[in-house]
């Protein structure tokens, strides 16, 4: 049971957004601008960073919904998200993405854990300033979203099909800014 009385039995962050629509608006907008663009990093790569950080934070709802969105974009490999969560260093992703995921993992531990050599490695593999910026901000933003969702003990459905269906809707129709809590 959630720690506060939510108006509707909606899963994860959606119940919280129904509780306080005023703060929901910028939260959704932040997810929209950070995740729903292919400039620099693709939508799929952005969702992968979000999923990876949520999995490090052990946030069930966030890693499953963003994992489903990331998997939606990775049509050529049905188990890509699982592989990245289990062992990204040996997953079938670019070397640049591995370097960016290592930065994301350091951000999850604490901003100060990001080292100059990690950043240099990413740059040598072709990562631009804006890609490094976006990686750090996506990782930091999911440290917020995960804490919000788990800190208030929201419930998360266990049926993977629910996440798949929602992910398809987010990817094809609503995005995050237009997504209604219902």
């Amino acid at each position: 049971m959630a720690h506060i009385d939510l108006p509707e039995p909606l899963p994860g962050i959606r119940g919280l957004m129904a509780f306080r629509p005023f703060t929901a608006q910028p939260l959704n907008l932040l997810a929209e601008v950070l995740l729903r663009t292919d400039e620099g990093l693709s939508k799929g790569e952005r969702e992968l960073i979000a999923t990876f950080v949520s999995s490090l934070n052990d946030c069930f709802f966030c890693q499953n919904i963003h994992g489903a969105v990331a998997q939606y974009y990775a049509k050529e490999d049905e188990t890509l998200v699982e592989k990245v969560k289990r062992d990204y260093e040996n997953a079938p992703i670019s070397e640049k993405m591995k370097a960016l995921l290592s930065i994301a993992a350091s951000v999850q531990k604490g901003g100060k854990f990001v080292t100059e050599s990690q950043v240099e490695k990413a740059k040598n593999l072709g990562a631009t300033d804006i890609e490094i910026h976006d990686t750090v901000l996506i990782a930091a933003a999911f440290c917020m979203f995960n804490r919000y969702v788990d800190g208030l003990a929201t419930f998360a459905p266990t049926d993977p099909e629910m996440y798949k269906a929602r992910a398809k809707k987010i990817a094809e129709e609503t995005g995050y800014a237009l997504a209604k809590p219902q």
């Binding site: 901003g111 930091a140 933003a141 804490r147």
Partner: peptide, 19 residues
């Protein structure tokens, strides 16, 4: 309180993560 605390985890990681 929870959302302010979570938001400052974002800020702190953002500010220090990019040195």
């Amino acid at each position: 309180t929870v959302l302010i605390a979570a938001l400052f985890c974002l800020y702190n990681k953002y500010v220090d993560g990019l040195a």
